[in-house]
Amino acid sequence: MKTGTKIRASLVAVLAVAAASPAVAEGKCSTAPRSNWQPKEALQQRLEEGGYRVRQIKVEGGCYEVYAFDKNGARANMAYNAETLEKLADPEAGEK
């Protein structure tokens, strides 16, 4: 799938579908080995304490990508650095 992802990434550049790239997202996904990551459960617990209902936490690169509902029941999609659990500005940070 890695090749597919690369082809896709270059196609995106060629087609320039994503108009001028948005301001560089704050924060980055972790580049540390997985053993340095915080467990998914820690993030889940923190989110639930904040009133989120968590549907799925995916590992994307060095990020956790969260699909949840916030306390108002609205769909929420966030990305966190898997090592620091710092919230990133771009929810798709781990997929790029």
């Binding site: 992802t5 196609l11 087609l15 579908v17 994503a18």
Partner: peptide, 18 residues
């Protein structure tokens, strides 16, 4: 379809529009 395929990972707004 090519645009949707190319944007399937990490380009949600374009992917959904396509």
């Amino acid at each position: 379809v090519i645009v949707a395929w190319a944007t399937s990972e990490g380009w949600r707004a374009s992917h959904e529009a396509a």
